[in-house]
Amino acid sequence: MLLITCPVTRTDELVADRRIRSVTNHATHIAMHVECPACGSVHVYRTGRKHIAATAAAQEARIPVHA
């Protein structure tokens, strides 16, 4: 079982393992395609330390620093 947040309805949903459509291993993260019980579409959830670090670095680069 997985606990996901549906980006369409913004609700937390408990999802059975059989709703996982595919799992793809990338160099920086793992992408999991999950069929959402709330809205019926397939959402992609990414996880991994390297993905979080890369996302944080990109966010940090976009935020202007005022001295």
Score class of each variant (00 low, 15 high):
residue 30 I to T: 11
residue 49 R to T: 11
residue 52 I to A: 14
residue 57 A to S: 13
residue 46 R to V: 02
residue 10 R to L: 11
residue 3 L to T: 15
residue 49 R to I: 09
residue 33 H to C: 01
residue 45 Y to M: 04
residue 27 A to G: 04
residue 63 I to M: 10
residue 1 M to T: 15
residue 1 M to E: 15
residue 22 S to W: 04
residue 60 E to S: 14
residue 66 H to L: 15
residue 23 V to C: 02
residue 52 I to W: 11
residue 65 V to C: 10
residue 29 H to M: 07
residue 45 Y to R: 01
residue 41 S to P: 00
residue 54 A to V: 08
residue 16 A to I: 02
residue 38 A to T: 03
residue 33 H to N: 06
residue 43 H to Y: 04
residue 18 R to G: 03
residue 20 I to W: 00
residue 32 M to P: 02
residue 56 A to H: 11
residue 23 V to L: 05
residue 28 T to H: 10
residue 15 V to G: 00
residue 14 L to D: 10
residue 36 C to Y: 00
residue 50 K to Y: 12
residue 59 Q to E: 15
residue 20 I to D: 01
residue 8 V to E: 12
residue 31 A to W: 00
residue 49 R to V: 12
residue 20 I to P: 00
residue 33 H to Q: 04
residue 31 A to R: 06
residue 63 I to S: 14
residue 47 T to F: 05
residue 53 A to Y: 09
residue 56 A to G: 05
residue 51 H to N: 13
residue 12 D to F: 07
residue 43 H to Q: 08
residue 52 I to C: 09
residue 61 A to T: 09
residue 64 P to M: 10
residue 21 R to P: 02
residue 10 R to T: 09
residue 39 C to F: 03
residue 56 A to P: 02
residue 14 L to P: 01
residue 4 I to K: 02
residue 17 D to W: 05
residue 45 Y to W: 05
residue 27 A to E: 10
residue 42 V to H: 03
residue 57 A to T: 06
